[in-house]
Write a protein that binds this DNA or RNA. Sequence first.
DNA 1: CATAAATAATAGTAAAGCTATCAAAAATAA
DNA 2: TTATTTTTGATAGCTTTACTATTATTTATG
Lengths: 225, 225
Amino acid sequence: MKQQLQIRMNENLFLRNPAQSELGKKIVGSSILLIHNNGFENFTFKKLAEVIGTTEAGVYRYFENKHKLLVYLTSWYWGWLEFQIVFKTNNIKNPVVKLKKVISLLGSAVEDDLQTDYIDEGVLYKIIIKEGSKAYLTKQVGEDNEKHFFKPYKDLCSIVGDIIIECNPKYKYPKSLASTLIEMSHFQNFFMINLPSLTDFGNSKEPNDIALFLTDLVFSSINKK
Amino acid sequence: MKQQLQIRMNENLFLRNPAQSELGKKIVGSSILLIHNNGFENFTFKKLAEVIGTTEAGVYRYFENKHKLLVYLTSWYWGWLEFQIVFKTNNIKNPVVKLKKVISLLGSAVEDDLQTDYIDEGVLYKIIIKEGSKAYLTKQVGEDNEKHFFKPYKDLCSIVGDIIIECNPKYKYPKSLASTLIEMSHFQNFFMINLPSLTDFGNSKEPNDIALFLTDLVFSSINKK
DNA sequence: CATAAATAATAGTAAAGCTATCAAAAATAA
DNA sequence: TTATTTTTGATAGCTTTACTATTATTTATG
């Protein structure tokens, strides 16, 4: 019997829950592919509707606009990643080992998770890298935040921050180090591929090099003196 | 006699050089204020034209589209900041002191530079924080990069990376640390103001706290063991 | 003063970003 | 199984954005 993993989503992100209908799942699944292919700026509900064989109005019945869809997708990703992290570090006692595991989970397009059939996590990961920050770098970030749109992202940062504190209770900047770690796992990846002179991994293009850098960065800070 | 500081700009960013006419300067100067007020997504050439008393077509004679204008603004900022950094660290011999100076220059809305009368660097700095990454987080980042649109940003990273190497010639990730430092000086600032739980400076909202965090982060890495 | 260059005024087009309406189909409840 | 509610499909339309083109007028320059 197939087990389906459901990520709990903020109800204000959608008009109709896309996880509860075939059309909704198609909207989410195909939007990931389309945003990846076209870039978020060139992505429209009309193009999406064509691809999945519905109408523009059909998509609008699920999402108010493409911004909310992007926030939905990023939220879903953070929720999913939190689950992965909690699940895969569950049995690890040593916080140092745990944090290293988190860094490796942050840094790679995971193998497609079969528990979530309509979402390709590998492609979604690439969207997070290229479009993820656009979810909050907006005029309405304050209102969106009041509606708790960024809770999954904050929760993840909080979990990582807590592990940092476990490693060294005296470290002064656990939250900022956590958000730095998460953001940089994506930015260094983006730079490596698109603007390689901004990184030290230009030639190898080996995602694991980023993990090595981040591990060095994080543990130097935590273990200072 | 008034000295005017001119930042050398990539010719492919504009159709007509905005620095060489009154209308051009108005376009640049007012676009900074408008983008800051409306956010980049809600900013249009039409609104800009209204504000400065010209027509949409008038703006299009200077810039092909708003993306190129954004790249122009960010490039200008990086060029200007490089000048500030080179100028203000010129006499500093000690690379550690130099790097600390760089961190403080990166982290604050500087006092409005009087050498550039039509550009408000303080407001431009805020645009860099909120909109800066949108200059390269696009579908066409590859083409833009081939046209050297991001050279000023790369140059700055390179300068910072060189100072890092001066501090410790054996440090393995000078470029990635430099880009991390620069990105985080903006992201932590954005988070502090808009999503404070992602930082450790939520209550104080004191930009200097960010500099302390970044100084700790950078020198822990450089001086490890 | 002549001429070239820059600007203003106006018009127009395709696409994006929606909203509204109504009929058909599918799911569900009586 | 029919009745009813919910969801979808088809179509239309409207405002704004993102441009391009044309011509007249002003401004700068030789």
